[in-house]
């Protein structure tokens, strides 16, 4: 029973949405689903947020290693909830948007979240460098192909590519690195992308059917649970 109901729900909802694509009167169902999903996700946040609090309060209570940082996390979380729910410092009345310029909520976003986001994102520059180094050390044929293609595209996007191969006569202009980079992007790159994308389309059909038909049901838990 505990499994049958959810399996039936998945089956019915899945098939209704598949057929809605072909039945014009049912076409808006996908938007309705998105709305439902958005609403459910906020309710679920009570579980997620509650879990976050519980983990850090436990750490604090048991004085585990680095418990001091848990205090910061809890304080930050509660501070942001208060700033947003009560719209502290909002220029205007309660009806104005929570992220109105000048509000405490928006200021914290601009000067705390934004620099943290951008810096975390910018770390990618270092990680790209270390990943490139690792790829460079790889010895097999596949990795070499990857590296050559990456090198040509990289050079093709800089003036250096033209400086190195600019001397090649126009009749062989394809071998000038910027042109070669464009050709790689438009031909072999496109071929690989297509094979991957077609495969994904088929993989999604197969997995979705397994879920809708109840062949795959590991996510549903056990009857005795």
């Amino acid at each position: 029973m505990k499994r049958l109901v959810p399996l039936t729900i998945t089956f019915i909802v899945g098939f209704v949405l598949i057929f809605s694509v072909f039945l014009p009167p049912a076409e808006g169902l996908d938007q309705t689903f998105t709305l439902y999903f958005d609403i459910i996700a906020v309710f679920a946040f009570f579980l997620g947020g509650g879990n976050l609090m519980r983990v850090h309060i436990n750490k604090l209570r048991r004085q585990k290693k680095d418990w001091g940082f848990s205090v910061v996390t809890i304080a930050g979380f509660l501070f942001m909830l208060a700033a947003g729910l009560f719209k502290i410092g909002n220029p205007g009345d309660i009806a104005t948007a929570v992220d109105t310029q000048g509000s405490l909520f928006k200021t914290v976003f601009d000067y705390v979240i934004n620099p943290l986001q951008s810096t975390m994102y910018s770390l990618l520059a270092f990680f790209v460098a270390s990943a490139s180094y690792r790829a460079f050390r790889a010895k097999n044929r596949e990795a070499t192909l990857l590296l050559i293609a990456a090198f040509v595209i990289l050079l093709g996007r800089t003036p250096f590519g033209m400086m190195v191969t600019g001397w090649i006569p126009d009749s062989f202009s394809i071998f000038q690195i910027p042109n070669l980079a464009i050709w790689i992007m438009n031909s072999p790159n496109l071929a690989g992308q297509r094979a991957i994308i077609i495969g994904i389309g088929l993989g999604v059909i197969s997995m979705s059917l397994r879920l809708i038909l109840g062949v795959e049901r590991s996510y549903l838990g056990d009857d005795n649970a």
Binding site: I196, G203, S206, M207
Partner: peptide, 11 residues
């Protein structure tokens, strides 16, 4: 796991 292999993995 490249694309399709991700969806095939659990099966």
């Amino acid at each position: 796991l490249i694309g399709e292999e991700l969806f095939a993995a659990s099966a």
